[in-house]
Nucleic acid binder design. Sequence first.
DNA 1: CTGTTAGCGCCTTCAC
DNA 2: GTGAAGGCGCTAACAG
Lengths: 333, 333
Amino acid sequence: VTTIKDVATLAAVSIATVSRVLNGNSNVSEETRARVLDAIRKLNYQPNALARNLRRSETRTITAIFPDLANTFFSRIIKGMEKVADERGFNILIGDTNNDPVKEMKFINLLRERRTDGIIFTTARVDSRHIIEISDKAPVVLACEYFPNIDIPSVGIDNVRAAYNATNYLIELGHKRIAHIGGPVNVILSHDRLKGYCMALEHNRIQVDETLIRTGTFYFDSGYEAMLSLLDVERRPTAVFAASDEMAIGAIKAIKEKGLRVPDDISVVGFDDIALAELVDLPLTTISQPVYKIGTTAMEMLTDLVAGRCLAHRQIILEAKLVIRRSTAPLGI
Amino acid sequence: VTTIKDVATLAAVSIATVSRVLNGNSNVSEETRARVLDAIRKLNYQPNALARNLRRSETRTITAIFPDLANTFFSRIIKGMEKVADERGFNILIGDTNNDPVKEMKFINLLRERRTDGIIFTTARVDSRHIIEISDKAPVVLACEYFPNIDIPSVGIDNVRAAYNATNYLIELGHKRIAHIGGPVNVILSHDRLKGYCMALEHNRIQVDETLIRTGTFYFDSGYEAMLSLLDVERRPTAVFAASDEMAIGAIKAIKEKGLRVPDDISVVGFDDIALAELVDLPLTTISQPVYKIGTTAMEMLTDLVAGRCLAHRQIILEAKLVIRRSTAPLGI
DNA sequence: CTGTTAGCGCCTTCAC
DNA sequence: GTGAAGGCGCTAACAG
């Protein structure tokens, strides 16, 4: 393999000069620069990133950690990250924790090994102490997640407000018995969405009914199961707000199986606006998250941090919007 | 930051000895080993991967290149890769080319920069010369794709056979006018699936009818469009075999919109068995690819290659199977 | 404008 | 069993 030395020899200059033209640095005469460039081309030389990284003590690599890549919601965020990473000369290391906090720890260690310049967590389920701790010492950004009252840079939406809007929309349609299928209890987003749901109810003088609240996993099956149990309630709900699209779709399946119709008998609202939400037989009314933008923003923040720049805004809230499709209808039409 | 030197000092040994215990190497007396281990713990020392990589001239990083991560088919392969990579001490660098051959080239360059130890392509659309060329000089594995008559290690299914089985199943159901919505022409898989389709027809003495063949992109919309045009054919088909589940689902939507029923009027078979295939209102009959296994196998092959081992089998064909759900029915029931 | 030099942190012969 | 020393390929002072 050819090294900087070979180039230097062929161009009859010192390796320092070669390094200079390589890095577009300082002053090199046009003439020598041309000679070096020529040698580089002739030798088909490519700098060794291993050596450069050691010397500069950087990796130009960002790690993005996801709870589950099979979830299309997350895979769409990657696109945004990729774009910015590409523009700024970074590569993306992917970590899929399979919802396992222990695996999360493994990825944090990449930082200590200096295998990565920074981490974006789209999952903050790990014992938060570890993330908080590491965020003092290394560039860390939270995407879609955050820790209340703790100043770790983050980007996401206002989940309370989005859930409020979704629930409020159902109320506007005339619904009063509105159920909620929430996410896992150890996830902050779940709390926020539940909170928004309750707030909307209360603001409209509707009593929050605990028997209409279920907890799921964000996955399809859990929405299906939760809905089944919700249909067994004495006075069944006329509307359901699910904390994820997958759960909403599972709920619809359960409703149909029981011989009821959506939205005629029961309205359903999801959350996330995954691609599937639109493709499904009954297009889903849902909260659309600006996933691509979350991805680009998170990567921008993190690479800024890596470059030692200060963040203008450490907590960025992006707009989510309610997308009305066909799974919701006015009460009793 | 603490380095090997600090450990050596604290343990009162040379850095060479520390390095030896770090690598479980050769002979170190039990006593000194204990002392070194103790120092490592006390200092919370973690070897610097940057330095180690340069010295060993390896990155312990594998790059996996996908045409589109938003496609759940691919995101499920990653899971398998992750597992093996984790077991064998590798990390995964992700590349999403967005179906852009130019971006593929960019990732190939990671090899020359020594930023990665090897590449798994799940997309071989790039001007194949480049992949063939690089495969001589560096560890490369093709997953789901391959180049006919060229000896690049690969793992996938027998697409001709799978398509044959899918089509043959429709024939067994009594269908004779069977349409095919194929993938992009520049993808080898598309040819194979078309070939299997034609073979099944011919073996059953059914004339291949060019007016029943369409080309899509593997994506939902293209299946929808193709089906629309297929429904305009004079004697419309009674069954459709689509080269991807997304296209099959798009086709079903088109069929329903035209007031026809699936499977009563038209049977539909997909390909891939993505998660959605089962969740959709009308669960899809499809060819199930062993995605997880493809992921683990590809990563096993590649890491073997990186370790300098020879591959027992350079072309691995895994079994795909026809999964019969509810989008297909006997003709004229 | 260009060259010399000193490492980055680690692994690995080669002596002892 | 252990230490000394060289060097992986590159960058960044520091001279000139």
